[in-house]
């Protein structure tokens, strides 16, 4: 299952100092709510991304707690003001304990 889960990020590679940039993220994930039943009437166990965090040079800049009502393939975007070059680290945490990661460098000119 984990092989099907792929994070995608879109971050401008370069930015001007103190420019406000938009960061877009999407992760392919079924977001199984735990409320549905299969054809045998058994409950399909919950499996969602429950947390997403973003850190810039190790310092947290964005955090989201996700709930079961959120659609499959959750898309999140936010704005960030960059004053120095550095790395953005994205982390998604799954109900089953898996952690999916992505990293992108930004050069501030």
């Amino acid at each position: 299952m984990a092989a099907d889960i792929k994070p995608r990020i879109r971050v401008p590679q370069t930015a001007k100092k103190d420019e406000i940039i938009e960061i877009k993220t999407l992760i392919s994930h079924p977001m199984e709510s735990g409320q549905r039943k299969d054809s045998q009437g058994k409950i399909i166990p919950r499996k969602i991304i429950n947390k997403m965090t973003v850190a810039f040079n190790g310092k947290p800049v964005f955090e989201a707690k996700l709930e079961p009502s959120i659609s499959a393939n959750p898309y999140l975007s936010f704005f960030l003001k960059c004053s120095a070059s550095g790395n953005l680290d994205f982390t998604w945490t799954d109900d089953d304990g898996s952690v999916y990661k992505a990293t992108q460098a930004i050069t501030v000119a």
Partner: peptide, 11 residues
């Protein structure tokens, strides 16, 4: 195209 979840299938 980034927001479009259909692009995941294309991938």
């Amino acid at each position: 195209d980034f927001e479009n979840p259909g692009m995941l299938a294309v991938q």
